[in-house]
Amino acid sequence: MANRIQKSVPMMMILPGLALAIAIIGYPIFDLGWTSMHDVSRFGKLTGFNGGENFAEVFVDPLFWESLWRTGIWTVAVVGGTLAISMPVAMILNDDFHGRGVARVIIMLPWAISLTMTAVVWRWALNGRAGLLNATLMNAGIIDQPIEWLATASTAFVVEILVGILVSIPFTTTILLGGLSSMPQDAYEAAVVDGASGWHQFRYITLPLMKPFINIAIVLNVIYVFNSLPIIWVMTEGGPANGTDILVTYLYKLAFRFGQLGKAAAISLVMFFVLLAFTMLYVALVSRNDRDDAAPEEEVKE
């Protein structure tokens, strides 16, 4: 009997947190599923079951497909750009040099600040008339007329992608640094003794050993970027003329501007399943890493 009480101790410890998570994260998923199959009034009243009508409506909506397409570009561009910059940055920060501590703090800085604030500041810095980006570029003689960065969708979207990359760098660099710092030093020493050049070391030691970390950085970033509302919302609200809308901004407008709750619920659910797929991938990656931990040495030697 004492045994049974002891066995229930860990359960008692995880239960309160689990209950909150199920209520706050689990229940809304269920509710979204339910709502997506009903007609919904502007004020959130379910007015009747309509089967897949909401979904049908979503799938014939050209704005949905445009947003989806743009979400793809947004995600691929931001994640790709972030990785391309973060990898060399992480390798530099992992090496020993004067002022490394300061460099690290500066690189990590954007992480500390809410995306909203960053986006607000950039919105002002990019102001077509008085923005300080124009001031800087004009002083440097690169342009001689101020540019209305956010007035046309195409430039606005590019700028938003660049800001997206900037704010994703700290997190990505952190993951890659974690990987680099766990790299076996003796493998490099052995490689040097074997006559490997710097490039060879990177190609045959760093890259293969970093692969699990790069994979995780990609998957986590895809999930975060895919879901990221504040940058686009604050800078352009998906405008002008829906030209910078991605799924999350379109979803938010439908739900809280236009009151099309059934349709919004349907999009939420579609997004949820996309996210679920990526999450599964992430879970698989993490558990594979756990297993790989047992015998990493064997692979290093070849």
């Binding site: 998570a21 739900a255 999450t279």
Partner: peptide, 21 residues
């Protein structure tokens, strides 16, 4: 696994459901 999943669930996807809750 459940923890990993909840970590990945972003508020924005659930925002409508949360609002109704």
């Amino acid at each position: 696994t459940f923890l990993l999943m909840t970590q990945m669930m972003s508020p924005i996807v659930l925002v409508l459901g949360l609002f109704r809750l």
